[in-house]
Design a binder for these strands. Structure first.
Lengths: 108, 108
DNA sequence: GTAAGTACCTTGCATAGCAAGATACTGTGT
DNA sequence: ACACAGTATCTTGCTATGCAAGGTACTTAC
């Protein structure tokens, strides 16, 4: 999978999963990996950024399966950001598709 | 427009335009900018990479409107790459869309 | 001669993803 | 008791790509 394609996209993916339910980092890796490969070395710095920007808050919760989990919850600002970034992704993706189709349909 | 979204995508956009017709750098900026912002500082290093990897060849052509134009033409290897990268983009974009829709349709 | 449009190019910066490794808790097998 | 696998957190150093800003040079028009 082209690593470059993921740049910026994993952020909206994380925001989108968190819009559905609170998650801890390790869990997010599993959720997102169902569709798109993502590693722990990516998720933790990303979550740190989201917290620094005020899009999420965190709380700790004990686990019987290992060390305590740090859960991430979307803030109101985070919900707005999720909405805006999703729209921007949709616009971007359809621009790319138009360009890829439009420039080849005469040649193909 | 989110700069990060463009990472890796501009390459397939360039390959796709070149699959349709030979272009010079300045012209590619104009073609692609119809859909996606791209600057000259991006296109020239990108074209250099494509040439180094054997996906394009170049030839000079005089112009009455300014300095000579350096045209880029896809090689066979470039056509294969264009096809493969386009498929990969399509797969990637639909994975992202599935993730963005799937994780919110229960919450929305 | 100077400004605007065309056309090429490079340098230095910012960003984000990843491999690899460090830390530590829990349960299982030996 | 010890080792290992699974869970869970985090950091460091590296890589790749896009961009602003700047430089060069040709042509036409004022």
């Amino acid at each position: 999978m082209n690593i470059q394609f993921k740049k910026g996209v994993l952020e909206i993916c994380v925001l989108s999963v968190l819009a559905h339910k609170d998650c801890y980092g390790y869990e997010l890796v599993g959720e997102i990996s169902k569709r798109i490969d993502i590693s722990e070395g990516t998720i933790y710095p990303l979550l740190r950024r989201l917290k620094d920007e005020g899009y999420v808050t965190t709380y700790l919760q004990e686990s019987v399966e290992g060390p305590p989990r740090k859960y991430y919850r979307l803030t109101e600002s985070g919900r707005t950001e999720e909405h805006d970034q999703k729209e921007e992704w949709m616009r971007f993706a359809s621009s790319v598709n138009a360009l890829l189709e439009g420039t080849t349909d005469a040649a193909d």
